[in-house]
Structures are given as C-alpha cells and as structure tokens.
Design a protein around this nucleic acid. Structure first.
Length: 425
RNA sequence: GGUGAGAUGGCUGAGCGGUUGAAAGCGCACGCCUGGAAAGCGUGUAUACGUUAAUAGCGUAUCGAGGGUUCGAAUCCCUCUCUCACCGCCA
C-alpha cells in the first residue's frame, strides 16, 4: 500500500500519478473520510483516556477502602459515549483500509506513459533470431514428435491448460530448472530456498494479490480448521517475499537475495481466448523466482541488477530476447517500475514475455510490516522480484530456437551437463 | 487422529482482575572507573497509530489471533491458530 500520509498531505500528486495508470482515485471520498477519521479518532482517544484514568482511580479508592461509587457513576456515563465513538472510528478505519489495500502503487518517474502493452518501450535487444533453411515447427508440433507434450492426457486427467510432458520434453524441462537454480545460486549470489506451495490470506495480502485479485487464485477448501482456505501460490514471490513479513532486519543483513523454484497456479480468469494452445498459458507452470529485500536507496540499482540476472539466463542459453520497460498503463498493481524480458519464438515469429522484473518499492513492505533497523529506527525495506525464468516458456523458446530439420533439439552447451553430456535430443 | 502441556519484550522468565508497557536475569547502547581492557557502578534499551515542523512532548492500542465478561483484562470465559511431548498412522 501507499503511505497513508500521502493521502493526507499529497493527495493531488498521488491522484495525478495514479491517473497515469488509468486509476481514478476518489479524492473527495478520501478527503471526507480523513477529516472524519481525524475528529473521531481524537474524540475516541480522549474518551478512552478519561475512562482509563477514572478506572485507575477506582482501583486506588478501593485499595484505600474508600467509597468508589461516585467515580463508578461517572465512568458509566462515559461508557456509552465512548463505545459509540469507538464503533464509529472502526467503521471509518475499515473504509480507509479498504481504499489503502485496493489502491495500486505510485509509479516511478522513469516509467513511460501509455495505455497497454503496445506502448511498452524497448530498451535493449540481445541476439539475432536464427534464419531457418527448413520449415519451422512450433513447440506444439515439436512436442507431438516423440510424444513429448501430451495435451490430451492432461485434458483427461485434469482439464484444459494443463500438460503432461514425457521423454525429452520432461528431461529438458527438469534440466532447465536445475540450470537456472545453479546459475542464480552459485554465480549471482542468491540463497536457494524451498517454500510451501500453499499460503494463507495474510501472505497474499502482504504481497498484494489480495484483496483485489482473488479470482486469479485457486483456493483450497477445507484446508484449515477454522474454514479459511489456503491458496495455491500464483508465484514464488508470495511465500519468498513473505519470509520477511513482520520482521525487523539488521541493516548489515541487507540485501537479502533469494532464489526459489516452485510451481505456480493461476486461474487465468479473463484470458479465455488467449494462448489456448500449447505451453504458453497454463494453470500450472514452473518458475524460478528471484526476490531481493534491499535498502530503499538501493532498490532501483537492485532492479537493474536483478533484471541482468534474468537476462543472463537467456544469454547463457543463447536465446534472442529484448527488454522492455512497461508503460504506465501496463505495469502491475504493486510495481513502481517493471522490466519485461521477451524471448524470440520462431514458431510465433514474435517476442513473448518470459520474465517480469519489478521494483515494488515499499508497497509490499508496508503491507507486510517488513522493516530493517536504520540508525536504530525501524524503516520499511524495499522489495523486488523477477522471474529467472518462467520454465515452461523457456522450454518453448529452447525447442523452437534449437530445432533441427529432422525435428531434433540441439542442446546448448551450458545445459549439456544436466543431460548427461549429450548435444541433441 | 488421540492425550497432555504451553504461547509474555532481542533472549530466558515472573505475573493469573486494579497506578503493569509489563518484575528479575541475560544481551545490547551510553557514561563513570582504568594506562588499556575485564570486573564493578550508574543510566537507558519494544512496536504501531494519532497529534505535531519534529525520529521533542502528549495521547491511544498491543502480553499467539479474534470475540466476550468487567468501571478496569497479560490475568476470567469462548472460538481459532501455532509450538512442544507421548501414542497411533504415514511419504
């Protein structure tokens, strides 16, 4: 969430910033609620103070064996008034909290204006798409060969947007995961973590998926005793970032850099016509995720670094890609700045998203109360995350870019150690 | 799944209805002492929110979470979560 103080002191600037996203902030409502909050809160606390003071007097009088009845009467008079004020305050605060939790983050000045993905700005490009001297197969065709991707099996087992992988596809997929974890863990300095694939509501509130995007999540009924469901994670960002929820970290422990491999589960509500075939958009997919917890002044540099780490995987695999900065209309809810990596897919003759790297600023940290001690004072950290990379899409890119005329897949050198040294599958 | 015991500040641990945001010890910070250090002595040491120019004062809330009883709750009642121990089952 945005600093609530900004709503009080800089409402117009916040509204103008959010308007760049196409988000209309209800300024009048906020102003009214804030004005009410202020007067009611002051009144409530004043009444609480009086009650507390009088109650203490009763204690003193009783200890001395004196008559406390007059004070009793006084406090009884206050009670109704106090409870009314408390109730009123609670309602106002609930409304404000609702606004705070559903308002997106403010965006960085360097984010370009725009309405949708068409207005994203390419900032660099790496590699050259390969020229093929034979008819190019897309990953679905390549998957059908050697029974690698079996969508009818997964449809039988579960439904659409799932996959069964076999043989070379399953092996390549697994090798990619190991490779990515090793590069980030051994070369980029991330601590490898293994985390739960189900999380509670507090975690999802912390990273911002809730309360606004419940329809994108899979909830597991009956998964806790008090009837609140757990949720399947839509990304490792949720469990990994929440590692620092409600923590006060030591300054010298920062930056924290985590890498985790997890499956991700997304309902893909509202994407009915999109990418219906193939591996691009699945309800369940694997991802290697990078998360950094940093001091505020370092977060923009950390974003560049983290993006570079994700890019490095593509470079090591020899997959052509471009890096775009998301425009104000395309950037996600909690991000203040985001770079997308788009990999070249010969089967589609297009660059497609394979990683999204974001600086969330203090947006998640404030929701999570994730802080560090800066000159003895608890200060909100900044959080970042990025895919390093989406494994399913990397598999698509790999097989399409490295296919041979015979429908074999050449194995990039860096991946060979993970496949017993072979150079073709 | 069963039975029992718990959950208090950075840690250990007291308190079980009244000036308790919370004893004591440890740790940590600063000061005194010292040639320097240790020991000793002294002082201080949670977080959020509000008010405010203020990380100064002052106020409110917080003793696993939520609800309740009460003039007043860390202390009593209810629900839930988690932890530990033993038994059962199990990858």
């Amino acid at each position: 969430m945005i600093d609530p103080k900004l709503f009080r002191n800089n409402l117009n600037e916040v509204a103008a910033n959010l308007a760049r996203r196409g988000f209309a902030l209800d300024k009048e409502k906020i102003e009214n609620l804030e004005a009410d909050r202020k007067s009611v809160q002051v009144k409530t606390e004043e009444l609480q103070n009086q009650t507390k003071t009088l109650s203490k007097q009763i204690g003193e009088l009783k200890a001395k064996g004196e008559d406390a009845q007059p004070v009793f009467d006084k406090v009884a008079e206050l009670k109704k008034q106090r409870e009314e004020a408390e109730h009123q305050l609670k309602e106002i605060q609930e409304q404000l909290t609702e606004i705070h939790l559903t308002t997106p983050n403010v965006i960085d000045e360097s984010v370009p204006d725009g309405n949708d993905e068409n207005d994203n700005v390419e900032i660099r490009k790496w590699g050259t798409p390969r020229e093929f001297d034979f008819p190019v197969r897309d990953h679905i065709e390549l998957g059908e060969m050697e029974n690698g991707l079996d969508f009818s099996a997964s449809a039988k087992l579960t439904g659409s947007r799932f996959v069964v992988m076999r043989n070379r596809m399953a092996r390549l997929h697994r090798a990619l995961i190991q490779f990515m974890l090793d590069v980030h863990g051994q070369e980029h300095g991330y601590q490898e973590v293994y985390v739960p694939y189900m999380v509670n509501r507090d975690s999802l509130l912390g990273t911002g998926q809730l309360p606004k995007f419940e329809e994108d999540l899979f909830a597991i009924k009956g998964s806790t005793q008090d009837n609140r469901p757990l949720y399947l994670i839509p990304t490792a960002e949720v469990p990994v970032t929440n590692l620092v929820r409600d923590e006060i970290l030591e300054e010298k422990s920062l930056p924290l850099k985590f890498v985790a491999h997890t499956p991700c589960f997304r309902s893909e509500a509202g994407s009915y016509g999109k990418d219906v075939k193939g591996l691009i958009r699945q309800h369940q997919f694997e991802k290697v995720e990078l998360v950094q917890i940093v001091e505020p002044e370092n977060s923009m540099a950390a974003l560049d670094e983290l993006t570079g780490h994700a890019e490095n995987i593509l470079k090591l695999l020899g997959l052509p890609f471009r890096t775009v900065i998301l425009c104000s209309g395309d950037i996600t809810f909690g991000a203040t700045k985001t770079y997308d990596l788009e990999v070249w897919l010969p089967g589609q003759q297009a660059y497609r998203e394979i990683s999204s790297c974001s600086n969330l600023g203090d947006f998640q940290a404030r929701r999570m109360q994730a802080r560090y001690r800066k000159d003895k004072k608890p200060t909100l950290v900044h959080t970042l995350n990025g895919s390093g990379l989406a494994v399913g899409r990397t598999l698509v890119a790999l097989v399409e870019n490295y296919q041979t005329a015979e429908g074999k897949i050449a194995i990039p050198e860096v991946l060979q150690p993970y496949l017993g040294g072979i150079n073709e599958l």
